[in-house]
Design a protein around this nucleic acid. Structure first.
Length: 936
DNA sequence: TTGTCAGATTTTCCTTTGCCGAAC
DNA sequence: CGTTCGGCTTTGGAAAATCTGACA
């Protein structure tokens, strides 16, 4: 019962989560067309996304009905608010059912996400809200919160909460999570392509060029440029376009035109505009995005963002964020209420997964505090009374939760906040740019810029006077940036990272730390160009072992990206052959030069090199599944180190070896399946004690109580002890068999030379009849009743008999089919006879014992002659060839329609009628007799 | 607060070559 | 009387994954 409840809860939450995902995607949909009307990929992606929510909703439907069924979802999983009895509304994505094991739905606690309860007389203290008893269902002032998202939680006892924690994901959960992950990945890829194509818009590019000061236009005339040439350009862009939190904006999908017009936009739009600007200046540029995709692992506990708050009612993240960061005031009349919630989240562009809420809150919390601290230090007072508000926010934050100091996250946030708020003149900035220090990536903005940037859309109208953290979005996780190809950077050129949002140039090594500080995972970093895409995660992720397990199956991912990579390479000149000395130019392929590189292949080499030169992890557990390194401690018992060296380093005193030294051991039988056999005179590398004794050994032991040592150990061999399988050749039409008189056909490699495997049903009988030697083909095992049973499929025969057997088999099958047909016909005839006999008998009985029954019941069986023939004639005038002679002892009341007592029914075509619905053909004789035939 | 580690717990994977009796 | 076919009973240990708590 508990398991069922947990399962239901899980399904509910995943359903809600998926609905939420699709909501965001559907949210974006309305704007897709504005970017590219002819883009079918978006449609395909959308359909794929819609399938999953509907699947999940199907699963969760039982849970809904159990709880009263007030939650509705439409076909694509978008939540609808359906009024409940007490004028409450349930917003699907934030609803989570918690079934109390004992009391069931005993208590409903409602929580206002937006803190509106505060103003509605429910008190400022979150604890008060949580402690309120809603048992009677009357909730004060809820009438005014018609569109307010609320979370309904059924009371959970501490015990059940604990039990739930121990529940783990099932295989189905994992499958679903993987499916969601893949679909989400595809959606984000599609989104990236849309943004990328928008960057190519000539109108946008021309508009950007028109804004650009003339002295900056000269970069387009520089054929080969370096990182420092980009500084003035990026600096100008940084100062003229500001990143804005567009939580309550009309547009939720990027619109470059709107961003260009207003000189402000989301981080995505700003990054895209920079890409457009670079492309307008004829620089080879990619739009790069972190695909912050839903988790690959099922997330049972944290799938709902408010879970952490629920588990920690007094100092949860939710509470802290509610007090410290005012969420946008919701328009109670807005029909897109549910969407609005996601728009806010979208502002941070974080994942839909478990860390979404915590990420957002964490970021905002820290920024608020950092900004608050700064307000004390920075001499220039903040405009719009921000200072006080921020201080208040921070103080209130401090009172609830101490600020974390001294860690990387704090430092990163501080740095980023400084870049947004500290005083720095435009001149000095330009100076620093001119110096061209690539290491100096975090430059400070001008005061003017700071003032502009500090404006947050919600701040001035914040209802409770608590400021939204200034620039929180701007200084959030780096999610979008540009990559510009600089020919002068290295010998062969280099893709240079340019982050306009955070004003970082050539800071690829900083991305990981910054993303980490904002709880964003660098699982997929994809560069878009020319409608194509390329995975460049390796360039930015130094700790690959940390993300490897969070990435989807690489074969699938590579297959997805394969066509996109070609497009990308084509658009960025990646297919052009490069000459040395950093001069990239398209040259004719020189047939005499057999060794040349394209830009794309050089980048591949660079990324591959990074993959092979990952630094040694500092913790032992990272070596457990590390692709490059291994320590002996974490090897399984089927693994050995051979050769045992070289030692690449040490971790906690354990020597670190290359993963290539790890060899997998298998038993002789296992190697056999791969078409390999152990060489003669090779001794097992390892012998393991057998945990499960073979069945026959168990029996023999039970009999005599003496074990067989050779059977008790599993002998393991390494790959270096093997040679290709050498089976005895078939001689004189005799198939070489094993000790059981069969052939184990694990694969084609396991077939003895000169033999062939015929996987046909009943083929053994043919071989037997032809007196040809054969062996049953064992193809695997079936595990039933705690034991394994061999599975046979077809036979193995010598090749020379193959044709003869196939020919005989074909004949045999034809004969068998004919026999079967004959048998079926006989059976059909017999059944017809039985049917008509019963009709006759029934008629006799009716005639003898009651006329009324006849009139009532046999509407479709007309008065008839008892002389019936059964036959298979297909003629127009069908007759039944089997006659049932009336013995004359019955007193048949023959209908007037019947022409005579001795009458052979003739079923003419023109009297037939066919009922389409029931597929019943009614045949009628002119005498009035009718027979209904059901067509098969 | 976060990361690491060891131990505990849960889930998944691997194991691997019949017998008996009723019906036909 | 021989052949066919369905039901029987439902392992259990190791590895892998994950959780927990202590500690730095």
């Amino acid at each position: 019962m508990r398991r069922r409840d947990q399962s239901k809860r899980k399904r509910q939450s995943s359903g809600a989560e998926i609905a939420k995902k699709s909501l965001n995607d559907s949210d974006s949909r309305g704007h897709l067309q504005s970017l590219n009307d002819n883009e079918p990929l978006a449609e395909i992606s959308r359909e794929a996304v819609c399938k999953i929510p509907s699947h999940a909703n199907k699963i969760s439907s039982s849970g809904k009905s159990m709880h009263g069924g007030y939650i509705n979802s439409d076909s694509i999983g978008i939540a609808k608010c359906v009024p409940e009895r007490n004028d409450k509304e349930v917003l699907d994505p934030t609803v989570r059912w918690k079934t109390s094991e004992t009391a069931g739905c005993s208590q409903i606690s409602m929580r206002s996400e937006e803190g509106k309860c505060k103003g509605a007389g429910l008190g400022n203290n979150k604890e008060e809200i949580d402690d309120l008893d809603w048992e009677d269902g009357s909730i004060a002032n809820l009438g005014s919160t018609d569109n307010m998202p609320v979370t309904i939680e059924l009371n959970v006892t501490p015990d059940s909460a604990r039990q739930k924690r121990t529940r783990r994901a099932s295989a189905a959960d994992k499958d679903l999570a993987e499916l969601v992950h893949k679909v989400h990945l595809l959606c984000l890829l599609a989104r990236g392509r849309l943004i990328d194509s928008a960057c190519d818009d000539p109108l946008i590019q021309a508009s950007l060029l028109s804004l650009l000061p003339t002295h900056l236009l000269k970069i387009s005339s520089v054929e080969i440029f370096s990182t420092k040439d980009l500084h003035p350009l990026v600096s100008w862009f940084h100062n003229n376009f500001l990143v804005r939190n567009l939580t309550s904006s009309k547009r939720s999908f990027p619109s470059l035109a709107a961003a260009l017009e207003s000189h402000e936009g989301s981080p995505e739009e700003i990054a895209a505009l920079l890409v457009a600007l670079f492309r307008a200046l004829k620089l080879t540029t990619r739009f790069v995005s972190i695909l912050d995709v839903a988790s690959l692992k099922p997330d049972l506990e944290n799938s709902n963002p408010s879970r952490s708050a629920a588990s920690k009612p007094n100092k949860g993240i939710f509470n802290a964020s509610t007090l410290m960061v005012s969420r946008p005031k919701q328009d109670s009349s807005s029909p897109e209420k549910s969407i609005h919630f996601h728009q806010r989240e979208d502002a941070c562009e974080t994942s839909y997964g478990r860390s979404r809420e915590s990420k957002e809150c964490c970021t905002r919390r820290h920024i608020a505090c950092v900004a608050g601290d700064l307000s004390d230090r920075v001499s220039d007072p903040l405009p719009f009374g921000e200072e006080n508000n921020i201080s208040e926010a921070c103080i209130s934050g401090k009172s609830q939760e101490p600020i974390r100091k001294g860690n990387l996250e704090f430092q990163m946030q501080l740095e980023m906040a400084l870049s947004a708020t500290a005083i720095k003149t435009q001149e000095s900035e330009m100076e620093s740019c001119a110096k061209g220090s690539s290491s100096h990536s975090l430059n400070f903005s001008s005061p003017f810029n700071r003032l502009r940037r500090i404006i947050n859309e919600e701040s001035p109208t914040s209802p409770d006077g608590i400021s939204v953290a200034v620039g929180s979005i701007k200084v959030g996780s780096p999610l979008y940036w540009a990559e510009v190809y600089c020919g002068r950077e290295t010998l062969t050129g280099k893709w240079v990272h340019v982050d306009a949002v955070n004003f970082i140039i050539d800071g690829e090594q900083k991305v990981e730390a910054m993303a980490h500080a904002c709880k964003t995972s660098l699982r997929y970093v994809v560069a878009f160009a020319g409608q194509g895409a390329k995975d460049v995660t390796r360039r930015y992720c130094m700790k690959w072992h940390k993300i490897a397990s969070q990435r989807v199956d690489s074969i699938w991912w590579d297959a997805v990206l394969a066509p996109l990579r070609k497009l990308e390479a084509g658009a960025t000149g990646g297919m052009d052959v490069l000459e040395g000395h950093g001069k990239n130019s398209s040259v004719e392929s020189d047939s005499s030069n057999t060794f040349f590189h394209t830009r794309s292949s050089l980048e591949d080499i660079e990324l591959e090199t990074r993959a092979l030169t990952e630094p040694l992890p500092t913790n032992q557990q990272a070596y457990k599944n590390h692709q490059l390194y291994a320590i002996e401690k974490w090897l399984t018992r089927y693994q050995v180190l051979r050769p045992k060296g070289p030692i690449l380093g040490f971790c906690s005193g354990h020597p670190v070896y290359p993963r290539t030294c790890v060899q997998t051991l298998k038993t002789k039988e296992r190697w056999l399946r791969e078409g390999l056999q152990v060489k003669a005179n090779e001794h097992p590398v390892k012998e393991l004690k057998r945990s499960v004794k073979p069945y026959n050994v168990q029996v023999s032991e039970a009999d005599d109580g003496v074990g067989n040592d050779s059977e008790e150990y599993i002998k393991l061999f390494g790959k270096w002890q093997l040679e290709p399988l050498c089976l005895p050749h078939a001689v004189n039409g005799i198939v070489p068999k094993n000790e059981r008189g069969q052939v184990d056909v694990w694969s084609e490699k396991c077939l003895p030379p000169g033999t062939v495997h015929l996987r046909l049903p009943r083929v053994f009988s043919v071989a037997k009849r032809l007196d040809i030697d054969y062996a049953p083909a064992m193809v695997g095992f079936e595990f039933r009743n705690g034991r394994s049973y061999p599975v046979f499929d077809g036979i193995v025969v010598c090749t020379e008999f193959k044709d003869a057997i196939l020919e005989a088999f074909t004949e045999e099958e034809e004969r068998r089919e004919a026999e079967e047909k004959r048998r079926n016909e006989t059976q059909a005839m017999s059944r017809w006879y039985q049917l008509l006999s019963s009709i006759v008998t029934r008629q006799r009985l009716n005639n003898r014992y009651g006329q009324s029954v006849v009139s009532e019941k046999s509407s479709d069986i007309q008065p008839m002659n008892s002389n019936i023939q059964i036959g298979g004639s297909q003629d127009t005038n069908q007759t039944f060839g089997c006659q049932i002679e009336d013995t004359g002892d019955t007193d048949l009341n023959v209908s007037s329609a019947a022409p005579s007592n001795i009458h052979e029914h003739a079923f003419l075509k023109e009297y037939e009628s066919f009922d389409e619905e029931s597929s019943v053909l009614t045949k009628r004789c002119h005498c009035g007799f009718s027979v209904q035939v059901e067509e098969l």
